[in-house]
Design a binder for these strands. Structure first.
Lengths: 209, 209
DNA sequence: AATATTTATGACCAGCAGTCAACAAATAAC
DNA sequence: GTTATTTGTTGACTGCTGGTCATAAATATT
């Protein structure tokens, strides 16, 4: 009985080791530059063993992405809880997002990477759904803040909160991507985010025209 | 004398053929799924000949990207010229962007792809600079509209036009990417863009707080 | 016609993700 | 304690791809 449990623990541990090792490599060198042999060498297991846990390089990446989305989600929740006024909550949320970006630069490439390039078929459907769900959860978090703002009159009504949340989310992503594509100097990112935030907030104060 | 010119014309024609063929393939199947042998077979030249014109698969892609950015730029210029009021001009510009997206779905993946994944080193520095310049030109077009709006008082001052342009550009990109990642249903994209646009415009009416 | 130069070719190479038959270790059965 | 069975590990191997290069073909020059 406990043998089985131990085995399961070991398996789980091995899995975790592969994931954290791969994450470090991906973050350091980028997804494309890391080979499975690199990962295998780093975890000191053979390539075959890795494929015993994951069915493709992309799946490994997807699990890492999921982890990061969980972190982002927790940041957002914290942000929503910490603030009082709606503006403050939204500000916290943006800051949380930018903080995650700063702390995990390379990961953001991966975040965009999945939508744009990765061969989606190489990622199991269930995992893909899980990732979608996390993104939706992040959006819902934003949405909750917005709805609260509408209720308390800080934010003008007439715009579906879901749509506004997506707009804000898109804006954040878009601006960060500008920075990532070196269209914007790293230093100006905060300034740019602040401007975007200020415009959006000003626009949201009044009801939809 | 005219022999040389003919040769040059032929070379140019060959180049163009490779580019348009590759473009069709990329758009139909995506960058990753197209092999150089596919391209070679489609243009009915050997792979070696292709490498006589381009130094990497990425470079081919980059030239296509450049072409598309030129189209976008012309769309934006037209939009700015066509509108009267600032709001109308901005609206036209957004519509132009979304139109390009609708007409060249797959290309947008490529647009994001370059920033995120592509091994930049595989693209000659000069070409890379050219691409950067086109993007900046697009931003400048937006900026011009905004400055005009500030001058005529339709848009509140206090915000550097360059930054606002980047925010708008980022917002557009971000929202389109949401659609592309199937977070948003294709049908809702127009609605979402409209909401974003409305919020931004409302926010811009008043001077920076 | 002979020679030089330019251009096209496709067999070839290296690197990679992913496979699998053989093997080793742990566990179960007797 | 010995054998059978299950489970997990391995790394040589495959197939595919971007990219190269010696050779061949075409063209230009004399």
């Amino acid at each position: 009985m406990s043998v089985k449990q131990r085995k399961l623990r070991e398996l789980e541990a091995r899995r975790g080791l592969i994931l954290t090792t791969a994450k470090d490599l991906f973050i350091k060198n980028g997804f494309g530059a890391v080979t499975l042999d690199d990962i295998a060498a780093a975890v000191e297991f053979s390539k075959g063993t890795i494929y015993n846990h994951f069915c493709s390089k992309e799946e490994i990446y997807a699990w890492i992405l999921l982890e990061h989305l969980d972190i982002l989600l927790s940041y957002l929740r914290e942000a929503a809880r910490a603030g009082r006024a709606t503006a403050e909550k939204l500000g916290n949320a943006t800051k949380a997002y930018v903080r995650l970006y700063r702390e995990h630069r390379e990961y953001f490439k991966l975040l965009f990477f999945i939508d744009v390039v990765s061969d989606q078929d190489r990622i199991p459907e269930g995992l893909r759904r899980e990732i979608r769900h996390r993104k939706i959860a992040c959006l819902l978090e934003l949405q909750a803040i917005l709805k609260d703002g509408i209720r308390s009159g800080k934010i003008g009504g007439g715009r579906p909160a879901a749509q506004v949340a997506m707009v804000l989310w898109g804006m954040l992503n878009g601006i960060i991507q500008l920075a990532e594509s070196r269209q914007v100097h790293e230093n100006d990112l905060d300034r740019l985010i602040a401007v975007g935030f200020e415009i959006a907030l000003a626009g949201l104060k009044n009801p939809a025209s």
